[in-house]
Amino acid sequence: MTLRQAQDERNQTFIAGIPLVLGGNVFGWTAKGDDGFAVLDAFYEAGGRMIDTADVYSAWIPGHKGGESESFIGEWLASRGVRGEMKIHTKTGMLSRKVPIQIGSDGDPTLYEPEEVLQSLGASLERLQTDYLDLYYAHRDYEQLDIGQIVDAFDGAVKSGKVRALGASNFTAERLAAALETADARGATPFTALQNEYNLVARKAYGAELQELCTSRGIAMLPFFGLAAGYLTGKYRNDEDFAQGDRAYRVKDYQESGKPVLAEMDRIAAETGASLPAIALAWLVRQPGIPAPIASARTVEQLQANLEFTRLELSDAQVERLTAALQ
């Protein structure tokens, strides 16, 4: 068996169903109660089998402490009896003493001490009401740590028998390559998934070097913010739009650079009859190393708009136009 074949085989432990990972950041926050369960039910009924969450969701909300999303998903899994059919992905490394850690800050590197990782894993499993994870991520890199410490800590999670595969999130090409080399040298479990930001208006975190690394090693890139926090739905068009909604503050950075992208998406929508979310996600799965994007939905209607991309086939020319639209 070649290295790539072995990687592809391992990837089947966390890739299943339609090519969409349902983002769990909204559950227990803007999607809760029966409405949140309706979204999860609709996703399952459509053939969706992958859900992504994190222990930090949604600690940024006043009155929340983190773990709300995992708890909500766990309640749904238990009530529907579908755990064996679902691929559950979660992350740790950005919740320190119930305080969310921002990317770019020094954070708390002690979160990647072996015992801390195992404690975080145990807490996630309890909230998710399961005894194993299909995919467990290092939610961010701590570059002040020797990469071997991170590799060993997460390898310990696999050796516990409670994790089937490992992923890295918010890692650079240099650090991911170092992690893979270290895992190979030590006979440790390697990262077989990457979760970085990547979409039509934000492409720096998955540049050419990372794309080459992922495709050569058979690493599945599952990008977050596939719809750029809602910007690529087209609902943010003028100053008034950017002042409204729970996530409006996150999309202000796209206000100017994103205009030509939305314009090209509008043209392709007119040509295909497809929604903007479907176009954005259909472009993503045509990019190197991406088997499925991550996208969240607060309502069943939003989910249905996202799922439309699974029935949309963009032409090569349309893909190229979208790629070229970002100045």
Rank of each mutant, 00 (worst) to 15 (best):
E197Q: 15
V163A: 05
R267L: 12
L281E: 00
V163K: 05
A193F: 04
R4E: 03
D108R: 06
A220N: 00
I15A: 00
E113M: 12
A54F: 01
A38V: 11
M50K: 07
T130Q: 12
T192V: 12
G107H: 03
E308S: 08
I15E: 00
F43T: 00
R237T: 03
D41E: 12
V261W: 03
D35H: 15
T233F: 13
R164Q: 14
R164D: 03
Q211V: 14
A138S: 09
Q144E: 14
M94C: 13
Y57L: 06
A280R: 07
A305R: 06
A138P: 00
A243H: 04
F154Q: 02
Y112H: 07
G207T: 06
P190S: 10
L77D: 05
F309H: 07
L232A: 11
N199I: 11
E212Q: 15
M86L: 14
L284Q: 11
K65L: 14
A54G: 03
Y57T: 07
D253Y: 14
R10M: 10
L77P: 06
A179L: 05
L307Q: 01
A153L: 04
I290Q: 01
E85T: 11
G63H: 12
G161Y: 04
Q149K: 15
T233I: 13
D184T: 13
G218V: 01
V163D: 01
S169E: 04
